[in-house]
C-alpha cells in the first residue's frame, strides 16, 4: 500500500541520488587539472561528467513524479491555496 511515509522516503532517496551524483560530477571535473590532460583523458572526463549530469536530470524528473504522487495526500488535509487544514 502506498503511504505518505513511503512517498517521503522515496523523495528522500531521489534527493540522496541527486546530491551524490553532483558530488561525483564535481569530483570528475574538479580533481583534474584540465589543461594538462590529453585529448583522450579530456574526453573521458567529459563523458563521465555528462553521464552523471544525465543521471541528475533523470533523478529530478523522478523526484517531481514523487511530489505529484504526494499532492493528493497533502491536499486532502490542507487546502493548497490557503494552507488551512480541512
Amino acid at each position: 500500500m502506498t503511504t505518505v511515509r513511503n512517498k517521503f522516503h522515496e523523495l528522500g532517496n531521489w534527493h540522496n541520488k541527486i546530491s551524490l551524483a553532483a558530488i561525483v560530477t564535481r569530483e570528475a571535473i574538479g580533481e583534474n587539472n584540465l589543461t594538462q590532460l590529453s585529448e583522450f583523458q579530456l574526453r573521458k572526463v567529459a563523458t563521465k561528467a555528462i553521464d552523471t549530469l544525465n543521471k541528475i536530470e533523470q533523478y529530478v524528473v523522478n523526484a517531481d513524479k514523487t511530489i505529484d504522487d504526494m499532492k493528493p495526500f497533502i491536499y486532502q488535509k490542507i487546502a493548497p491555496d490557503t494552507n488551512i487544514p480541512k
Binding site: K17, A21, I23, V24, E27, A28
Partner: peptide, 16 residues
C-alpha cells in the same frame, strides 16, 4: 540497498 547510490558511491571511491 539502492543500486544507484551504491554505483555512484563506488564511482566516487574510484576517483579517490
Amino acid at each position: 540497498d539502492e543500486i544507484d547510490i551504491c554505483d555512484l558511491f563506488a564511482d566516487y571511491l574510484e576517483m579517490r
